[in-house]
Each structure stands twice: as C-alpha cells, then as structure tokens.
Simulated scan of single mutants.
Amino acid sequence: MSSTNIPGSSQWAISDVLKRASPGRVPFSVEFMPPRDDAAEERLYRAAEVFHDLGASFVSITYGAGGSTRERTSRIARRLAQQPLTTLVHLTLIEHTREEMRGILQNYLENGVTNLLALRGDPPGDPLGDWIGTEGGLNYTSELIDMINETPEFAAFDIGIASFPEGHFRAKSLEEDTKYTIAKLRAGAEYSITQMFFDVDHFLRLRDRLIAADPIHGAKPIIPGIMPITSLQAAQRQMALSGSQLPAKLEADLIRAANGDEEANKDEIRKVGIEFSTQMAERLIAEGVSDLHFMTLNFTRATQEVLYNLGMAPAWGAELGHDAVR
C-alpha cells in the first residue's frame, strides 16, 4: 500500500518502504518523542529537517502514557508527514475506550497518517507497575489489530508492532513472549520494531525464535531499535524502565569513562557510546537487517555521528565546514 492522502506530501506504507532499495548501505529511520513545550517542539522539527536531508526512510513519533501527548502527537505527525517524511505514529491502549480508539484512528486516517505502531502501552507513572485495563477499552494489541481489520474504512492502515530481544518483562518466558509476538504478526502486523537493546546476540536469537515458531509470519521484518549512548545515567534509567540491563562490559566501559564524574567526562562517555552503537550497527548490517531505527531523544548529533562512522552521512563538526546538514 502507498498513499498520497495529504496534499503536498507522499506517504508510503512502512512495509513497502522496507522493500525499497536504499541509496546507503541500509535504510535508517529515527524515533522522536512528543516534546513537553513549544520550544522543544520546534527543536524536534529542526531535527526532522536534518534527518530528512540525511535520507531517513521514515520517522516515528511515540505516544505518551494514557494519551497524555495525544493532541501533540497528532499535530506533530501531521506536520512531519507534510515535510514530506514517511511518518509512523505509535498508539497505545492505556486509558482509552474502544470508541475513543476508533476516533483516534479516524482522525489519523482523515489526515493521511496511516502508518501505525500498535502497542499495549505501559501504565502511567510506573511503567513496570501492574497493567490495568480501561472499562470499555481494549486489553491486548491483537485486539486493536483485529478492530482495524474488521473495520473496512481502516483498510489503509499499515500496522507494525513492538518486539523484545530479551523478551517482554511481563512474559513468563521467552517461549510465551514468542507466542504473543507471533499472534500479533498473524493478526495482521507487517513488521516489528524492537525495544532498545545492546546485545546483538539477543536480536539474532529473537529472529531465530520467531522464524522457528512460524516460518511465514515469523519471517516478517524485524527492525532493530538502537539508542546511541551519550549519558551513563540516561542509559541506566532507560534500561530500568524497560525491565532490562546494560551488558556488563558496556556498563563497565561507561563507568570507567565517567571516572567518577559524568559531567566532567561526558565526552569520553559519548565516545564509548558512539563507538559501541557503530559496532552494533555494523554487525546488524552484516546480518542483513532491513533498517536501522535510531532512538534519538529528539537530538541529531549522536545518530549522525554513528551514520558517519557507517559511511552513511556527512561528518559532524564545525571544523569540517558544517555541524549538521542544515
């Protein structure tokens, strides 16, 4: 599926984007988070211009817990799509009734934003807390996919899901996690984007598990989620929120680089993080991934540095004549 529903823009289905040839070694995409205020929103748009010029295959915009960023997410998605950038919106089930979900989907459809990452979502306030359903709402991602498939006017949506290289922390085992992921792919999801991870072996084992469980649906594209580390504390916090841990050697290298004072040694920490992400990306490219999805936290520099190391972007640095594309 491809669509041109928005005047002056061109939106492609992500499942089609993943099949297209890339001018670089491999396509890359980026994730943005809904900013907290107008100034941060404008910074996001400037970052989007940079990634547009660098040739990002698509951009995604996350969704706040309980729809706390619903209006901002929708507005940003519309503007990104008009740049034009192929735009993927995240949608969670938290604190939405079934009818509210229909309204959100209808709004996206009317604005030509038809790439959807369907997610159950985490409880607001405590991502690791107990998941409590909303009265009149949906409880599982597969129910959202079914609702879309059963609604003729929603046929334009191209659906992706999340996948978890180390298994979702709520799953009792990797086997159970595999079963639920396959169920969502069979329901109609065309691809998955992984939670951030820092051990490529976990990604490869996920790919093997899914294919072994279902050679057809399990072979759908798995897009690796990569976050270039520029802060030890931020990386530790992000992993804690996802119920995961940094690999012991990487954490030790980052702690050694921090040398007891993260602020004073932030450049050394950044150097370790950028080099590690570059090595991850090199191995993933060698393993034939269809796309590299960078979690940017709405900044450009770290991702551009990794892309430069991969031979996929200009160098960063004013001494080189520029410090970004724009």
Rank of each mutant, 00 (worst) to 15 (best):
P123S: 07
P124E: 04
P124W: 01
G125D: 05
G125V: 09
G125F: 10
D126A: 15
D126E: 13
L128W: 10
G129K: 11
I132H: 15
G133F: 05
G133I: 12
T134K: 12
E135G: 07
G136M: 08
G137V: 09
N139S: 10
Y140C: 03
L144P: 07
L144I: 12
I145W: 06
D146Y: 08
D146H: 14
N149H: 12
E150S: 12
E150F: 02
T151C: 02
P152K: 11
E153N: 07
F154R: 03
F154P: 04
F154K: 01
A155Y: 05
F157K: 00
D158Q: 11
D158L: 12
I159T: 04
G160H: 07
I161P: 10
P165T: 09
G167T: 04
G167V: 07
G167N: 04
G167Q: 02
R170D: 00
R170W: 00
R170N: 00
A171V: 09
S173R: 08
L174P: 01
E176V: 15
E176A: 15
D177I: 05
K179A: 12
Y180M: 01
Y180C: 00
I182H: 05
A183C: 01
A183E: 10
K184R: 14
L185F: 11
L185P: 05
A187E: 12
A189I: 06
S192R: 05
S192P: 13
S192W: 11
I193M: 07
I193Y: 02
I193A: 03
T194L: 08
T194Y: 02
Q195Y: 12
M196P: 10
F197I: 02
D201I: 14
F203T: 03
F203Q: 01
L204I: 13
R205I: 15
R205D: 14
L206I: 14
R207M: 00
D208E: 13
P215H: 15
H217I: 01
G218I: 07
A219W: 05
K220E: 03
P221S: 05
I222M: 15
P224G: 09
P224Y: 10
P224N: 08
G225N: 07
I226P: 00
M227T: 14
M227N: 08
T230S: 04
L232A: 06
Q233W: 03
Q233S: 15
A234D: 11
A235Q: 10
Q236D: 13
Q236F: 05
R237Y: 13
R237S: 09
L241S: 01
S242I: 12
G243H: 06
G243N: 10
G243D: 06
Q245W: 00
L246A: 11
K249E: 15
L250T: 10
A252S: 14
A252D: 12
A252N: 11
I255G: 01
I255E: 14
R256A: 14
A258Y: 02
N259I: 09
N259E: 09
